[in-house]
Amino acid sequence: MENSVEINNLQKRLKDFEIKNISLCVPRGSVVGLIGENGAGKSTTIKSILELMRADAGSIKVFGKSASMLTRTEKNRIGAVLGETCLPENFTLRDINDVMKHIFSNWSESLFFGYATQFSLPKDQKVREFSRGMRQKLSLAIALSHGAELLILDEPTSGLDPVARDEILDMLYDFMQDERHSVLISSHIVSDLEKLCDYIVFIHEGAIIFEEEKDVLYEKYGILKCSEQELFSLDPSSIVAYRRGEFGAGALVLREKVPANLFLERASIEDIMLYYLRGERTTNTCGIKGVRKCSV
């Protein structure tokens, strides 16, 4: 399968943070979600893909070409929504349209104002008067109005109410109806990614913990709720992490390694993330490194 984005051994050292050998890929036609806590390295990874930061080592390819070598036309095939709005606050939608016409070679005025109407964005109001939700919708409207094939979205739903988040997710569903389109999206609102993504990449402290197909994660992991005694009678290699509670223990376990007669709840992506970050480990705990390899 062709990859829209391919990162190999990305390293970037910042003042008090480091990205360590990150490798991931975004196959064409798929949605890849980057999950992790605030400060895990999601934005640094995204900024490196967009060349907002220079990597110390490693390679980043976008559409099969080194990200640093992309021409303007090729870069225009990427639609980016960054954490902040990053648009002139003094501008109205008309001003933004006037400028974007000259920034993007495939800018579509009709698409832009179409999205603006769909998102109920006022045409004559300045961006600084927009709410956070309106600003995010505006950023997304811009990203979708110049024929982008790849959307790179850094926390696009952060700080939005559930209705606004749902609207944005709907837009992304529509975008993905074209099989040439791909999305790389980061969020710490894991439930949003769960609805949308084909693949999940979990980053923690600048390193990838796992990179896996979402459905495989569901097949692979389960939540076991039982007494501590029952839990520790299991093969330790079946327990990824566990948490003690008032009424027993909960554990993230590998389905294939626990006896078939035990009832396992479905592990959501959020469960997997939380158990990994906050759960305790047995001495012989298993690794949860993903197995998906980039297909070049």
Partner: peptide, 18 residues
């Protein structure tokens, strides 16, 4: 000063402006 306040450079660089 406007660009610094608006984070414009981030957007511009991500959009193909060198």
């Amino acid at each position: 000063a406007y660009d610094e306040k608006d984070n414009w450079d981030k957007f511009a660089l991500a959009s193909g402006v060198t």
